[in-house]
């Protein structure tokens, strides 16, 4: 499966420019992480990719052909988990998945049982959704996206509300699925992207600031991350963004990201988070 977006622009009726002239190409197998601050345009991009919105300009191709005429084909291969969604509280977990399976045109119980097993919901299958905790509801959301083993999975903040153990588990599941599928994962949690994504897109103010492998992003940040010890009341050096502060016996150990590190700072090994902040800090002008 291959999806191409060419010079996409999305302007909402309110005048808000959500995406500006972006182009991206994605094909399976792949697990692509989309990173960006709130309001950057991540969710808009996902809605465009599932034919939930019509772009103001530009076009989207599915396997080389326009997406909209193939909407049904796309949806028959799509598993989608939006950031914010509702469930039918009055149905049980199994009944809800059965309902969604029927909407997806899936027959038999296997697809439901598989999804329940993957989402670790088998023991909750008879519980009314209204009685589930936030984390379990999120897992029901993931389970419905996994129904029917779709070839394209678009997951918006899938690990929000999950406990650390569940998060690790789902990360591994996504990673395994990406062996033969295309997965798009939008998230704020940089750690999720670092551990499983082979490609990362950084979206900011409607632009794609970076599109490449996480290692490449990290490499570009070499020499821009440093640590130094400061005392209470010391100002932050100009041009530096403090990533972390740790109180130590000698004073406050600060980790900073900067285009040009101050002389007293000692260079440090960058992480993906440092790299992300560094790239965001440079903004769209550096494109």
């Amino acid at each position: 499966m291959k999806i191409e977006a060419n010079q996409l622009t999305m302007i909402y009726p309110s005048g808000k420019k959500a995406l500006q002239n972006i182009s991206v190409r994605m094909e399976s197998p792949n697990l692509i992480g989309i990173l960006g601050p709130n309001g950057a345009g991540k969710t808009t991009l996902m809605k465009l990719l599932i034919a939930g919105l019509i772009p103001t300009k530009g076009d989207i191709l599915l396997d080389g052909k326009a997406l909209l005429p193939q909407e049904n084909r796309l949806k028959s291969q799509l598993g989608y988990l939006p950031q914010s969604f509702g469930l039918y509280d009055e149905l049980s977990v199994w009944q809800f998945l059965d309902y969604m399976a029927a909407l997806k045109g899936l027959k038999g119980k296997k697809a439901i049982d598989d999804a329940l097993a993957v989402a670790n919901l088998a023991e909750h299958r008879k519980v009314r959704i209204g009685a589930l905790s936030g984390g379990l509801r999120q897992r029901v959301g993931i389970a419905q996206a996994l129904l029917g083993n779709p070839q394209l999975l678009i997951l918006d903040e899938p690990t929000v509300g999950l406990d650390p153990e569940e998060r690790v588990k789902f990360r591994n599941i996504f990673s395994e699925m990406a062996r033969d599928k295309l997965l798009l994962l939008s998230t704020h949690i940089v750690e999720d992207v670092q551990s499983i994504c082979n490609r990362v897109l950084i979206v900011h103010d409607g632009h794609i600031l970076f599109d490449g492998e996480p290692a490449e992003l990290i490499a570009r940040t070499e020499g821009h991350v440093g640590v130094y010890v400061s005392q209470i009341g010391d100002p932050t050096p100009e041009g530096c963004q403090v990533v972390s502060k740790v109180n130590t016996a000698r004073g406050i150990q600060c980790r900073v990201v900067a285009e040009c590190l101050p002389g007293f700072a000692k260079a440090a090994e960058p992480t993906l988070e440092d790299a992300y902040l560094h790239r965001i800090g440079k903004g769209a002008d550096a494109l």
């Binding site: 599932i50 939930g52 049904n72 949806k75 028959s76 799509l78 989608y80 939006p82 914010s84 969604f85 509702g86 469930l87 039918y88 969604m100 909407l103 997806k104 045109g105 959301g141 419905q144």
Partner: peptide, 14 residues
């Protein structure tokens, strides 16, 4: 409430 479920059902091929 129903609109919030529609984001899921709307992504199905029905």
């Amino acid at each position: 409430k129903e609109k919030r479920v529609e984001v899921l059902t709307g992504a199905t091929p029905v």
